[in-house]
């Protein structure tokens, strides 16, 4: 990694940190569990690194490590998004009252 790439990467990191702070502070406690599973799914983006490792045929060890990493990261991405949606579906503002049902 050259100095320029490092500095550029640090810029991205710092700005993402501030942005993250601003965005996440606005999430109400009501949604903290979905928030955690959502960020979990999003950080499953490390799948991107695993895919290259698994498919590039650098060497056998890397391929095996990459394969396991792809599996683990996919569990997070797929499972994380699905369960977040399952939870968010349950949050309702008001329900039909008991009288309405009758």
């Amino acid at each position: 990694m050259s100095h320029e790439t490092l500095i550029a990467a640090l810029y991205v990191f710092a700005l993402a940190a501030f942005l993250g702070y601003q965005v996440i502070s606005r999430v109400p406690p009501l949604l903290h569990t979905p928030l955690m599973s959502a960020t979990n799914a999003i950080s499953g983006i490390s799948l991107v690194g695993s895919l290259v490792t698994a498919g590039a045929q650098y060497n056998t060890v890397s391929t095996i490590l990459g394969f396991v990493a792809v599996t683990c990261a996919t569990i997070n991405v797929v499972g994380g998004f699905m369960i977040t949606d399952r939870m968010l579906r349950m949050f309702k503002r008001k329900l039909p009252t008991v009288k309405d049902k009758k």
Partner: peptide, 18 residues
């Protein structure tokens, strides 16, 4: 940082700060 990939840095940082 290790593989110079910005989307990883951004998504990871968001998760880290959350």
């Amino acid at each position: 940082f290790a593989i110079s990939n910005n989307v990883l840095i951004i998504a990871g940082t968001l998760d880290g700060f959350s």
